[in-house]
Design a binder for these strands. Structure first.
Length: 593
RNA sequence: AGUCCCGUAGUUCAAUGGAUAGAAUAGAAGUUUCCUAAACUUUAGAUGCAAGUUCGAUUCUUGCCGGGACUACCA
């Protein structure tokens, strides 16, 4: 049993003996004792004054006395107002660390047999990935890791948006102005090459609109009547009809993009178990429309269009099939739900998609529940906020985006410069050094994007994000490297990492053990909230607390060899916990830096 | 207009209804004959406004003020 388990069990016993009250395990809440008071765990007695029929302070004292007499783990306690602060005995701390060091995958839950699908990334094949995609990909990858740590079997999927009018736009521009350019001939990554033509389309399209407005058309009409957009629409029609030339071009261009994405994903360090393509799924969902009509979930208007009445959920009426029988976005998403479930019978399905689609997913989930899908309650939209720049919002067509590839390579370069400045690459081979720069640069970027609560809109300041000091990825990585050095030294000196009894602990050592003890809880919370920021915060707290200990206590400088062994064991467990926390975030933990 | 999200130090972020609201960074002052100073210590600085519920509210409720998103027979 861990610390919290012991305390709770003691409290339950105390309540039943003293007050004949049955305290429920789930309702007990313990909090960390504030730094300025003695103790490590605090129990708040205010809510129980009714049960004890005494004032909170007296209640706390009574409980403290009881625990002191009837358990073997309480060294002492103090009461401030209604707060019962508990100081645990050294043997308790030691047994906790001992227990942790014997676990194989400390913090991870046992497999629970449930399946989860996590969909993330979902790029369009008409332009390269940008800063917003980085947040999406890092979130998705990390949440998948966190759910795995919570015992789920996770399948990571990527639903690529590879068809539609926007794809035709870049295709059309390429046909008109491409002159047969290829990634090889241009030296551009495939996705960047295609992105270039998407921008060209937009520029030329805008010129046409301007000309039409000049000639007296209202803006709305001009947008619809411009030659380029009509041509793009015609091209989409051809694609849908399976026109060979169009399809061949589409395949060629998409393959360039895929090759480009592959490089980007590799640099990001993310991966997928399965790729879905919208060109294969865009016709799905029509049978669900029929089903919905039968079940009375949908209704049909006179013009044959089909609607869902969601006014009871404050979601209004929503079109699910056009009057001419063709699909809309939500139609295929309904179909995709079932398709995914057929591929993997999941209990949860997570969609990592920006918060501008909150409404869409509310509608989709509401419909799937009304249709009685067994997985309806397990659908979850991991909705994240935009990433803003100091200069304002990013717009891909206007070129005010921060490109993902550029940003990552800048981070790596900065990491290299900084590392060289500190003179920290002695004894590194070129490959090792390069690997280190990538670990640090991407560690900084990932941590920066993941430490923030996903649902919050966040500001990306290029200057601050490349800081390597303070609450940053490299700070945590540094702590890991520092501990690794200690462990190497311990090995060299022939010290063991073992937890012996009969030693007294420094307060910083207790604080570190307390944090280690919390690791499983934090993983559980991160899973429940789908929030990597919980893990990021934890890793930072742990690194900070360890550095404090490191500063106060000289690890190898002690007459008692048992203390040295204990400190090494403590360091080793911290290194493991940091490494696995960073791992959950998709960040590597270097042994040297 | 309606629906949803967000307002916390100068700045970027924390805080299952709990104590004197934590960090980081920028500012000021220190620590290196000693395990990696990408570190540590000290210092100063904040809950948009107004009510309500509560022993206790950054957190829950309502109203207002500010910022954003969505409300397409686009995807």
């Amino acid at each position: 049993m861990d610390i919290v388990g012991h305390i709770k069990a003691g409290l339950i016993k105390a309540f039943s003996t003293l007050y004949q009250h049955e305290l429920k395990l789930e309702e007990i809440s313990l909090q960390p004792t504030r730094k300025e008071f003695e103790g490590s765990h605090t129990f708040v007695t205010f809510p129980y004054a009714r049960v004890s029929k005494k004032n909170p302070e007296a209640t706390a004292n009574e409980l403290g006395d009881f625990l002191k007499e009837n358990t073997d783990w309480l060294k002492s306690f103090n009461v401030v107002k209604g707060f019962l602060n508990l100081e645990l005995s050294d043997s308790m701390w030691l047994s906790v660390l001992d227990h942790i060091s014997k676990e194989n995958n400390y913090g991870y839950a046992k497999p629970n047999g449930e399946h989860v699908m996590v969909e993330y990334s979902s790029p369009n094949t008409n332009k390269p990935l940008h800063l917003g995609h980085l947040r999406n990909n890092f979130l998705g990858y990390s949440v998948a890791n966190i759910l795995t740590a919570n015992g789920y079997e996770v399948m990571k999927v990527n639903l690529v948006n590879d068809r539609g009018i926007h794809i035709c736009k870049s295709m059309l521009a390429y046909v008109k102005w491409g002159n047969g350019e290829t990634p090889e001939s241009s030296g551009l990554k495939g996705d960047h090459l295609i992105g270039k033509y998407y921008v060209i389309f937009d520029q030329e399209y805008k010129k046409e609109i301007a000309a039409l407005i000049e000639s007296g058309q209202p803006e709305e009409d001009a947008k619809k009547n411009a030659g380029l957009i009509l041509e793009a629409q015609a091209m989409l029609k051809k694609w849908e009809d399976g026109d060979e030339e169009t399809v061949t071009l589409w395949q060629k261009m998409n393959n360039w993009v895929y090759a480009g994405f592959e490089q980007t994903y590799q640099q990001m360090g993310v991966s997928f178990d399965k790729m879905y393509k919208e060109s294969n799924t865009y016709l799905l969902g029509k049978d669900i429309v029929d089903e919905g009509l039968e079940k009375g979930v949908f209704y049909q208007k006179e013009d044959h269009s089909v609607w869902a009445d969601l006014t009871a959920d404050k979601l209004d009426n929503k079109l699910v099939l056009r009057g001419n029988g063709t699909s809309v976005y939500i139609t295929q998403d309904m179909g995709t739900c079932d398709m995914k479930y057929n591929d993997l019978p999941f209990t949860k399905s997570v969609y990592v998609v920006g918060n501008e689609q909150d409404y869409h997913f509310n509608v989709l989930f509401s419909i799937m529940k009304k249709l009685g899908r067994p997985y309806g309650e397990g659908l979850y939209h991991l909705s994240y906020g935009m990433v803003d720049l100091p200069t304002g919002k990013m717009k891909s067509r206007e070129g005010t985006v921060v490109d993902a590839d550029d940003l990552m390579s800048e981070m790596i370069t900065t990491a290299e410069e900084h590392t060289r400045e500190l003179g920290k690459i002695d004894g590194f081979s070129d490959e090792e050094a390069q690997e280190l720069y990538e670990n640090i640069g991407l560690g900084a970027l990932k941590y920066f994007l993941l430490k923030v609560d996903p649902k919050k809109r966040m500001l990306f300041n290029p200057q601050e994000s490349i800081e390597f000091q303070g609450n940053t990825g490299p700070f945590i990585q540094y702590t890991h490297a520092r501990i690794s050095a200690i462990l190497r030294r311990a090995k060299g000196l022939g010290h063991e990492a073992t937890v012996k009894t009969n030693i007294s602990l420094h307060t910083t050592e207790q604080a570190v053990v307390t944090l280690l003890n919390e690791f499983p809880e934090r993983i559980k919370l991160a899973g429940k909230d789908y929030s990597p920021s919980v893990i990021a915060q934890y890793a930072f707290d742990l690194a900070k607390e360890y550095n404090r200990f490191y500063q106060e206590v000289k690890i190898f400088d002690d007459e008692d060899p048992n203390k040295i062994s204990f400190r090494i064991a403590l360091s080793q467990e911290v290194a493991k916990a940091i490494k696995s926390s960073l791992g959950l975030l998709g960040i590597n933990a270097p042994e040297k830096m």
